[in-house]
């Protein structure tokens, strides 16, 4: 079972775990940025006046929310990028294989874009319609109204949900080891193969994931509290 010898053996591969952490963090951070941009576009389409765009955006969101993540990752990797053959074999930070990493980022971003767009949409809709009416009756145009009146209030409302999504991405990115991304889970796999210390490797991975997600949610909670204090002042 779990022994200190076993942990020693697993720890001797600390470089793999470190690489795994770097990989998981870059993967999640890139996903959030790209996912957020996609989400803004989707939210604008869904609330816009063009019927076709509204329908397409809604269909996209429903599709990505109603299918398993692993299926999406496999489709992006094996079908869209044709199992790496179309991508250059560059290595990021000297070790992250771009031909595995990039499809993973695309798949995760497409998925979280769907979730984030719903969060953004609900945030915008949570702002009282009277705010828009007041702004428009003062002569502000639609874009100014969104920028100066609606969005600042919406973002405050949805900050916790966005933080939640970030934590979710860190956790769900673990699936990407199945297409050969060298993240924390892939380190576990390598250590398992080399030392047969599966339990120890998994516990190390658990601690690492916790150390990534817990501070993330705490940091955002802190900002949230600060913003809420600004409300009352």
């Amino acid at each position: 079972m779990l022994t200190s010898k076993g942990f020693e053996a697993a720890f001797s591969y600390w470089q793999l775990f470190l690489q795994g952490v770097v990989c998981t963090v870059s993967l999640s951070a890139l996903t959030v940025v790209l996912g957020f941009i996609l989400a803004l576009l989707l939210a604008v389409c869904r609330m816009g006046r063009a019927r076709l765009l509204r329908i397409l955006a809604a269909a996209y969101v429903e599709l990505f929310r109603a299918t398993p993540m692993i299926v999406q990752v496999f489709i992006i990797y094996y079908v869209v990028f044709n199992g790496v053959k179309v991508l250059p074999g560059v290595k990021l930070f000297g070790f992250i294989r771009f031909d595995r990493f990039f499809p993973a980022v695309v798949a995760l971003a497409l998925n979280s874009g769907a979730y984030l767009s719903e969060i953004i949409r609900s945030g915008i809709q949570s702002v009282d319609g009277g705010q828009t009416e007041a702004a428009r009756s003062l002569g502000l145009n639609a874009v100014q109204t969104m920028r100066f009146v609606v969005l600042p209030q919406a973002i405050k409302n949805i900050l916790p949900a966005i933080a939640n999504e970030f934590v979710t991405i860190i956790k769900e990115s673990a699936i990407c080891y199945t297409i050969g991304v060298q993240d924390i889970m892939s380190a576990v796999n390598a250590v398992k193969g080399a030392t047969y210390r599966t339990g120890e490797a998994l516990i190390i991975a658990t601690v690492l994931y916790f150390c990534l997600t817990y501070p993330t949610s705490k940091i955002i909670e802190h900002f949230e509290r600060k913003m809420r204090r600004g409300d009352i002042r």
Binding site: R136, L138, N141
Partner: peptide
């Protein structure tokens, strides 16, 4: 918008910008 700015409007629920 050019015409709207010449018509001030006051609402039942004030609609001040809370932020």
């Amino acid at each position: 918008d050019v015409h709207r700015q010449k018509m001030g409007m006051v609402f039942q629920h004030f609609n001040l910008f809370p932020h």
